[in-house]
Simulated scan of single mutants.
Amino acid sequence: MKHSPEFLEQTYDPRDPSPWLALYLDQSTPLSEEVKRAWLADSSSRSRQFVLPFIRPFARTLIVLFQVVKVFIPRVAFSRALHRLLAWGMENFIRPEANWLILRHFHLGSQILGFIAANAPVEVPTNPLRPGVIADVREDMFLVHDLNLYNFVIRLNQNLRAAGRELEPVARPDFSMIAPPPLRLEDMPRRGRNFLDLQSSIELFTPIYQLLLTDSDFWRATNSLQLDETIGLYVATILDARAHLMLVNNGHPLVPMSTLRAGFRLTLHGLSTEMAHAFLMARQQHQAVTQI
């Protein structure tokens, strides 16, 4: 089966230019060629064009209905069943590019938190997540990913307050934890039924996530997306590069948003994380060159 995106195989026609080719060739935002190719291959898929418009309103209707259910049973949770279902769906129905990006996300999030911890003026414990295969997500990985983010922000700021310190620019930051995740796109399931794009998958999984977790767990998970700006500020402060915060798209952390758009915001969260990691990789390479 071919691995090259369709928009790269088409002949360029100035009278009918491909928007995907334009986005692929553009280099105004930090993103590796490999990630950009996979992201745009997924975004330009027929699944996203024809399936997503039907899945999105259906999934958001379920969110509203399940919220009513959670009013009466807010504490019922089936986390293990949820993660087994998510892993099964990823293995059997999601496109290889989408699966690769999802697994990468756990690595990138762990590396970015590790970067902040290593360059903070206080000690901050972390709990890195490094899935190697889809089956690894069965161990409550999505839930732990959200918990890690909140716990990191709490512990970092507790320790900063206790020490009377704050984050500040670091002349030569420690980039030792920043590296491409050891995941290969070609190792992802690539059967005929693996057709579902990233956004459709996220939209479909969101109400399932809501149904099988407690109301508190779901609310916390969706609102963790508001911490994109917080984590972006931490990284920008250490690197003295706040101008790059324009790449953060999830809004102000003190203004919680409706869970209804959680699927779309989660996609933005994934892209922001990829761009933050690409930016750190570029800074790492620049610092290595200047040391020679």
Rank of each mutant, 00 (worst) to 15 (best):
S4D: 14
P5Y: 07
Q10I: 06
Q10Y: 02
T11E: 10
D13V: 09
P19A: 10
A22Y: 06
L23R: 15
L25W: 07
Q27A: 11
P30K: 13
A38M: 13
W39S: 06
L40Q: 07
L40N: 04
F50K: 11
L52I: 00
P53N: 05
P53G: 04
F54C: 02
R56I: 05
I63T: 14
V64T: 11
L65D: 05
L65H: 04
F66V: 15
V68F: 14
V71I: 10
F72V: 05
R75W: 11
V76K: 11
F78M: 13
L86R: 09
A87Q: 14
N92I: 08
N92G: 10
I94Q: 09
R95Y: 01
P96W: 13
A98D: 12
L103E: 03
L103K: 09
H105M: 07
H107M: 04
H107W: 13
L108T: 03
S110F: 01
I116D: 08
A118D: 07
N119H: 10
T126F: 01
N127P: 01
L129G: 07
R130M: 12
V137S: 04
L143W: 10
H145Q: 10
H145I: 07
H145N: 11
L147F: 10
N148R: 02
L149R: 00
L149T: 06
L149A: 03
Y150H: 09
F152E: 00
L156P: 08
A163H: 06
R165A: 09
R165Y: 00
L167S: 12
L167A: 11
E168T: 01
V170G: 03
F175S: 03
S176G: 09
S176R: 10
M177I: 07
M177L: 13
M177A: 15
P180V: 14
P182Y: 08
L185R: 13
D187C: 06
R190V: 04
G192V: 12
F195G: 03
L196D: 00
D197P: 12
L198D: 02
S201A: 09
I202V: 14
T206C: 10
P207G: 03
L212F: 09
L213A: 14
D215K: 15
T222C: 06
L225M: 08
Q226L: 05
E229W: 00
E229A: 00
T230L: 00
I231V: 15
V235F: 04
I238H: 02
I238T: 02
L239Y: 09
L239I: 04
D240A: 06
D240S: 02
D240C: 01
A241L: 03
A243E: 13
H244K: 13
H244S: 12
H244L: 14
V248T: 06
N249Q: 15
N249F: 01
N250H: 00
G251E: 01
L254R: 09
L260T: 00
R261W: 15
A262N: 13
G263I: 01
F264C: 03
F264D: 11
T267R: 05
T267P: 04
H269M: 02
L271V: 12
L271E: 09
T273I: 14
M275Q: 15
H277E: 12
H277L: 04
L280K: 11
M281L: 15
A282I: 02
A282N: 08
A282D: 13
Q284K: 15
Q287T: 08
A288P: 07
V289L: 13
